[in-house]
Structure formats: C-alpha cells, structure tokens
Amino acid sequence: HNLTITQGKLFFHYNPKLCLSEIHKMEEVSGTKGRQERNDIALKTNGDQASCENELLKFSYIRTSFDKILLRWEPYWPPDFRDLLGFMLFYKEAPYQNVTEFDGQDACGSNSWTVVDIDPPLRSNDPKSQNHPGWLMRGLKPWTQYAIFVKTLVTFSDERRTYGAKSDIIYVQTDATNPSVPLDPISVSNSSSQIILKWKPPSDPNGNITHYLVFWERQAEDSELFELDYCLKGLKLPSRTWSPPFESEDSQKHNQSEYEDSAGECCSCPKTDSQILKELEESSFRKTFEDYLHNVVFVPRKTSSGTGAEDPRPSRKRRSLGDVGNVTVAVPTVAAFPNTSSTSVPTSPEEHRPFEKVVNKESLVISGLRHFTGYRIELQACNQDTPEERCSVAAYVSARTMPEAKADDIVGPVTHEIFENNVVHLMWQEPKEPNGLIVLYEVSYRRYGDEELHLCVSRKHFALERGCRLRGLSPGNYSVRIRATSLAGNGSWTEPTYFYVTDYLDVPSNIA
C-alpha cells in the first residue's frame, strides 16, 4: 500500500525493539523526510534493546553428524571492536523451508527459537588472519532439518551509529543413524509349514526405512522333555500350542467401542483428552525405555581390526524358502538304536541362519518350516543398504507352526516275539517326523474274553527296548493296539495285532 503524509511529521519514542533503520525507511515511504526535528525521533529510546544489523554474515563451514552440527561463519568486528559482546545463534526444527525470524513471537518477546549466546573469538592483530567464530550444536535429532541463523550482539553506541551483522536463515539436516526397533511384532501360524509375521514401523526411523531383515531359527525343545518319565503317576503330560491366527481386521481397528449394538453396526467412541494424553505418555515412556535398553543392555560386537582377528559373527547367506525346513542338525536320541526319531534339535552355532529381506511392506510369510516346531524370529529395521547396512537392534518374537495331521501315527506293522515265561516283546517304529517329539506310547492289549488293559511306555523305555515287553501273560489269544502321544496330543491307534500265548508248562520236552 502507498502511504503519503502531505502535512505533519513523524514522532517515535520509547520503541526499544524498533531499529532506527526501520524508522528511516518509514520517513522515505511516507514522504516526511526532512520535516522531523532532532528530538522527534529519539536516538536513545528507539532500538536500544534490539540488534540492528546492516551487514550480512556468511557461514564459512558446515559439518553434520547424526546428532551434531558444527558451524563456522566469517569474522565480524565493528569499528570499535570492544562493542562486540558476542553472537546469538538461533535454531529450531523446520520440516519445511518457510521459516521466518519472527515465527511464534508474542507480545512478551518470546519466540519459538532456541538461542545460544556465543563469546567472540580472540581478536588477531592481523586483519587478514582473524579467527572464524563458530559453535557445535549438540543433542539434535537424527535425520531432522533445522533452520539456523546467527547475528551479532553489540553494545549501545553513544554516537548512535547503527552497526551489526546478521546471516540469512539456512537449512541444515542432520545425518541418518540406526533406527529404533520395529514396533509390535506379531507372529502367527496359518499352516503346519508357515508363519505369518506382521509389525509396525519404528517410532524413530532416523532416516528413510529402506528394508527390513527377518531372521528365523528353529528352537530346540526343553531338555526336561527328553529326561522326564511322563508315565509316572502324578506327572502331567506336557503340551505345546501353536500360535493362533490373526483376529479379523475389524476387531483390530483402534479407537473402536468394545460393545456392539445388537441391531447392527455401531460407531466408534472418540477417545477423551485424558485417554489420548495417557497414550502419549505411555508411548514416550516406551521410547525412553527402549533407548535405555539399547544403550545399557546391548553391547556392540567388536569388529575385526587390522591384526587379522576374525569377526566372530557368522556370515549372512541367503537361502531359498524351500530350504528352511531342514535348518537344524538332527541327532538321534540314543545312538545305539537307529530307529528312534531325530527330534532332539541342538543347533550348531556355526550354522548360517536363513533370512529374508523385506522391502516396502511390514509383513512376511515364512514358508518351508517344520510342522509343530518353535521358531525364534528376529526382526531388524534398516535405513541404508549400501555401502553397508545400517540397521536397528533386533526385536524378537516366537511362534510355533501348526501340527501336521497323521504325523504322530505309527507307520509300519507292530511285530512281536514270544519268549519263555510268557513274555512277549512288542516292537514298532517311532514316527519319523512327529509333531514336536514323542513323549510316550500307549499300549492297549486284551486277552479274548477279558477286559482291555493299558500300559504306558516312556520315551526312554522305548529307546532301550525298541518297544516294550509284556510279562506274566496268561495263555490265550491276544490283540494289541499302540498309539503315540506327542507334544500336540495323541496320534491314531494302530491296526490290531494278534498273537497267541501258550502255557509254557505244557511245552513238550526233548528229553527222552
């Protein structure tokens, strides 16, 4: 807008934040220059609390790290170098490059900038070799853009010569660093050979998330399962459950009422301010606690030095998902009996873990797994792929695949051998790939016309006998059925096997 004052003059007093240069501009645009008398524009009460600059400061050096910015700028000295009290560095987070010096300023003089007072450097006698002032900004957020400017702080001049310097606002972004852990990993099994893994992005990506790394490792069953005799009275049979499938998407929606109208769909109840505040506090606490764990609990591995020492970490090797089922080394339970199943799973520490690289999504279907087997899954978020990966501390989750139908069934015939004193040795093959492992066998036998009897055969007993022995049988026709019990439950009964026990007292003698 054009402003013209045809008559009258300007009068400025007691404006401590208004620089004289701005008042002189007002004289020019209003056409009143030359009308004012000496005392109409006070030299001592206008701009006496402001830094009124008329020179431009330029930054000469900028260096960044993930949490620091090192700045240096060209030296500046007023005509009387004693008038320079120091520099004021202003900075704040700036997602967009549209910041002005006066953003967030209120009537009390406060604003949204963080201000650092910096002492002037030592003055050199040689004007050509003056030290460049600077400042190291610490405690910054990774991968965050900051708006920065600097200006001088000078003393009051009796001659009211307006001098000083100020830089333009520059924008500097800190470097990326390792992201925080992925949030809320959930693993479920939808079949006997697959596990579905879902997660949420890290709360602090500290860069642009480029991919996720998912490692999985087959877990050995508890050692007590191999040692305890679950045929003993009072000892509860062990059981394991597989990871249940995901709930429906509708039930997972946030901010939804727990109660549904019987007449149909209901609208979600909005969260109160107290609920939102509580969630923010919980989120802040979780982030602080995660940072504490990362800094205190997890110790970084030592990389190899120039002395030739090897990095103890196993090298990563990509495998196809079809090879995942046989990740671990199978060892027989008892070496003397080769027909026992290889369900003991000690994992070799030198073995390469299978892994998958996930790009542009937060889910993965891990296939080719062994049925009813526990897996430990390790999830890392990465925001750099080359020249070397920059990934987060791992988040861990466990899951067990679903049982395989008929995996616990005894394959092959049940054979028998009759000894003296009416002892019958029953023999059968253990299931080759049971659900988890076989903890015991149930032997059901009966003599024709009598009630059915049951015998429990422990895992250890089966390994020693290759089956079991029935003792003290009365003469007669017998039928026997056997079924295995694994961590997933009972298998199917075998087809009945028949044998006849004679009275050993009636056996004919070869003595003449």
Rank of each mutant, 00 (worst) to 15 (best):
P205K: 08
G207T: 02
I209V: 08
I209G: 11
T210N: 02
H211A: 11
Y212I: 13
Y212K: 00
R218I: 06
R218A: 08
R218E: 08
Q219W: 06
Q219A: 03
D222V: 09
D222N: 10
S223K: 09
F226L: 11
E227S: 10
E227Y: 10
D229F: 12
D229V: 06
Y230S: 07
Y230E: 02
Y230H: 03
L232Y: 05
L232M: 10
L235I: 10
L235H: 09
K236R: 10
L237P: 13
L237H: 02
P238H: 04
S239N: 04
R240L: 07
T241F: 14
W242R: 09
W242Y: 06
P244R: 13
P245V: 10
P245D: 03
P245T: 06
F246Q: 12
S248E: 02
D250A: 12
D250F: 13
N255V: 05
Q256C: 04
S257P: 10
Y259S: 12
Y259V: 13
Y259N: 04
E260K: 02
E260H: 14
D261P: 10
A263N: 13
G264Q: 13
E265W: 12
E265Y: 08
C266F: 03
C266A: 15
C266Y: 03
C266K: 09
S268D: 07
S268E: 10
S268F: 04
P270A: 12
K271R: 12
K271F: 09
S274E: 07
I276F: 14
L277Y: 03
L280H: 12
E282Q: 15
S283M: 08
R286S: 05
K287F: 06
K287E: 08
T288C: 14
F289A: 03
Y292H: 12
Y292V: 06
H294L: 15
H294K: 12
V296Q: 05
F298R: 08
V299I: 08
R301T: 13
K302N: 13
K302Q: 11
S305V: 12
S305G: 04
G306R: 08
T307A: 09
A309P: 07
A309K: 14
D311T: 10
R313P: 13
S315N: 13
S315A: 11
K317C: 07
K317D: 07
R318Q: 02
R319E: 05
R319Q: 02
G322A: 15
G322M: 10
G325V: 08
N326F: 14
N326R: 13
V327H: 10
V327M: 05
T328K: 12
V329L: 13
V329M: 07
T333D: 06
V334E: 02
F337W: 08
S344A: 09
S344V: 13
S344Q: 10
S344I: 07
V345R: 12
T347M: 12
E350G: 13
E350W: 09
H352N: 04
R353D: 15
R353P: 09
R353F: 03
P354K: 07
F355M: 11
E356T: 09
K357G: 08
V359N: 12
E362D: 13
E362N: 10
S363I: 05
I366F: 13
S367I: 13
G368S: 11
R370M: 10
H371L: 06
F372R: 08
F372Q: 04
R376F: 13
E378W: 07
L379Q: 01
Q380S: 09
A381V: 03
N383S: 05
D385E: 08
T386A: 12
P387H: 03
E388R: 02
E389I: 15
E389V: 05
E389T: 11
R390Y: 12
R390P: 09
A395M: 10
A395F: 09
A395L: 06
V397Y: 11
A399W: 04
T401M: 02
T401K: 00
M402P: 03
M402R: 09
P403Q: 08
P403L: 10
K406Q: 13
D408K: 01
D408R: 01
D409F: 14
I410Q: 07
G412M: 11
V414Q: 04
T415Y: 14
T415G: 03
E417G: 09
I418H: 02
I418D: 13
I418P: 05
I418E: 13
F419L: 08
N421Y: 13
N421F: 02
N421C: 03
N422K: 15
V424S: 01
E430T: 13
E430L: 03
P431T: 03
P431Q: 04
K432L: 07
E433T: 06
P434F: 11
P434L: 01
P434D: 01
N435A: 02
N435G: 01
G436L: 06
L437I: 03
I438R: 00
I438E: 02
V439Q: 04
Y441H: 05
E442Q: 03
E442I: 05
E442K: 08
V443K: 00
V443A: 07
V443G: 00
S444H: 11
S444G: 03
Y445C: 08
Y445R: 02
Y445W: 07
Y445Q: 02
R447N: 04
Y448T: 13
G449E: 14
E451A: 14
E452S: 03
E452Q: 05
H454Y: 14
H454W: 04
C456M: 02
S458G: 11
K460W: 06
H461R: 10
F462W: 13
F462K: 09
F462G: 02
A463V: 05
L464H: 09
E465N: 10
G467A: 05
G467E: 02
G467K: 08
G467D: 01
C468D: 00
L470P: 00
R471K: 06
G472M: 06
G472Q: 05
L473D: 00
S474H: 09
S474I: 09
P475K: 07
N477Y: 12
Y478S: 00
S479C: 03
V480K: 01
V480N: 01
R481W: 06
T485I: 08
T485M: 09
S486T: 11
G489F: 12
G489A: 11
G489Y: 08
G489P: 02
N490S: 15
S492M: 05
T494S: 06
P496I: 06
P496Q: 02
T497N: 06
T497Q: 12
T497A: 05
Y498P: 05
F499Y: 02
F499T: 01
F499W: 02
F499D: 00
F499P: 01
F499E: 01
Y500Q: 04
V501H: 03
V501W: 02
Y504T: 09
L505H: 09
L505F: 11
V507I: 10
S509Y: 15
